[in-house]
Simulated scan of single mutants.
Amino acid sequence: MSKSEEGSVPADTREDIMEATFRALSEHGYSDLRMRDIGEEMEMTRQVIHYHYDGKQDLMSSFLEYIIDQYEGSVEVDGDAPPRKELEVRVHQCLFGPGFEEFSHWDRMKVYHELFTHAQNDAEHRAIFNEHYDRIRGSITEVIEDGIDRGVFRDTDPERAGQLITDIIHAARGRKLSLGHDDAPDQAWRSIDEFVVDSLLADGVEPGADGSDA
């Protein structure tokens, strides 16, 4: 068991280390990143990192979970929100992210995406990304299932629909970050709304009729 898995890192210390890791990754990239680079981004001594983490691999795994938790913990949906509105909120969050005091959503996504591309050669990181993907897809699938139960969405395969939406989100992120297509998130947002969500609506349900802004 790694040091970080034991829950021994105080919350404030962990946040300082994680934010320093983000700044160092943004400047140096994953391949060239050294523990020394992270230490130079902190006011505390570098030995604090070595005390709490068993090297770069352990630190990067903890960092991935930190970034993911930032996003998953910031989704706020009214418990009484109609299914389509909740779906819009979740998709919008995935595409455009929450606000951050330091660095933008896309600054953070750039680091996330770089680590994502390295996951093919890292089983531990791949497992973390797979778990995150499953949680995103699962949350979207649950909304679609609720919409079907409430008669807002037609009877369809919610898991396949949830996977399609999740894959469009991931593809749009990749287009923006890797290919420089800055309009990709907006295009994905409109396409999901027009070609996916509208097609899910049950007969007799008009776009926006369930209280959404469509």
Rank of each mutant, 00 (worst) to 15 (best):
S4T: 07
S8L: 15
V9T: 09
A11L: 10
D12R: 14
I17T: 05
I17G: 10
E19I: 08
T21E: 06
A24N: 09
A24Y: 09
Y30P: 01
L33P: 09
R34T: 14
R36N: 11
R36L: 08
I38F: 04
I38H: 07
G39W: 12
G39V: 08
E40L: 08
E41A: 13
E43K: 13
Q57G: 08
S61T: 03
S62L: 01
S62E: 14
F63R: 04
Y66F: 15
Q70A: 05
V75C: 06
V77Y: 07
D78Q: 10
D78I: 04
A81D: 14
P82W: 02
P83W: 11
K85F: 05
L87F: 14
L87M: 15
E88D: 14
C94D: 09
F103K: 12
S104Q: 03
R108H: 12
V111S: 07
H113R: 13
E114W: 01
F116M: 11
F116S: 10
T117E: 13
T117D: 10
Q120K: 12
N121S: 13
A123I: 06
A123R: 08
E124N: 11
I128T: 06
N130T: 07
E131G: 11
Y133M: 01
I136R: 11
I144Q: 02
E145N: 01
I148P: 01
D149S: 12
R150C: 02
T156S: 12
D157W: 01
D157Y: 03
R160S: 11
A161W: 09
G174F: 01
D182H: 12
D183A: 12
A184T: 07
A188F: 05
R190F: 10
R190P: 01
E194W: 00
D198F: 00
S199N: 12
L201S: 04
V205E: 12
P207W: 00
D210Q: 06
S212W: 02
S212T: 09
